[in-house]
Amino acid sequence: MQRISNRMNRVDLAFKRLRREKKKALIPFITAGDPDLATTKDLVFTLEESGAHIIELGVPFSDPLADGPVIQAASLRALGQAVGLSKVFELVLDIRQETEVPLVLMTYYNPVFRLGLEKAAHQAALAGVDGFIIPDLPPEESGEWRKLARANSLDVIFLVAPNTPPSRARFLASRTSGFLYAVSITGITGKRDGIPDGLTDYLKMLRSITNKALAVGFGISSPSQVKAIGPLCDGVIIGSALVDLLARYGNRNNGFIQIRSFVKSIAEALTGN
């Protein structure tokens, strides 16, 4: 087996550079294989050109219990293409021939567990994946996975929620690598209007307990939200709004024009800070 060198990965480098430049990270999410892998590949390049700093690729799963209807539907479309973890690794390997944009996989735990933690970490690193977000794997259950991820220079990104008490938030921040993923609402993924009550205080609390990069996601879908949240964190994650655009406008030229202009509007809202 090829050895993975102990290097600083692309996510850490991206946040380092952005901090130096006093910029915020724009992190779009798309489901790999929705509607097919060729589109996902094109879309990664489009997102990068439109201002994305890190890209999250969703690995489709039959039972996505942290996701709302939009990403559930995308997951189902991708499963229809028989896309799973191994095909996503192949896709990343393919994308890596052309770009160094940081790529983070968002997957439920079972596909990783089923493949075998050691194989998953090794194959991910070989393909050029930079990290994993596994919403149903809390740090308490992740000892072995974190060890393997570290050995393969993969980030293990933990989520923190508005109902997480400060002491536990500190624990999550100490365990996370790459960034700390602040869930903006108690709930599942999906577009929402406005800024949730208490979000400002919650993000200030998180800022006060960690120096690690802090990215906010779940329900973030408009430039006005991003303008309000940007100053309180190091990056924002846009998921359902983007997946919804793709579903509505199709995967060809028209859809990509819509997506490009949407992502640019978010990027502008972020730099406006």
Binding site: P138, L159, P162, N163, T164, P165, R168, L172, G187
Partner: peptide, 8 residues
């Protein structure tokens, strides 16, 4: 094995 929102 649950989302963070359910841990507490």
């Amino acid at each position: 094995f649950v989302p963070e929102t359910l841990m507490t």
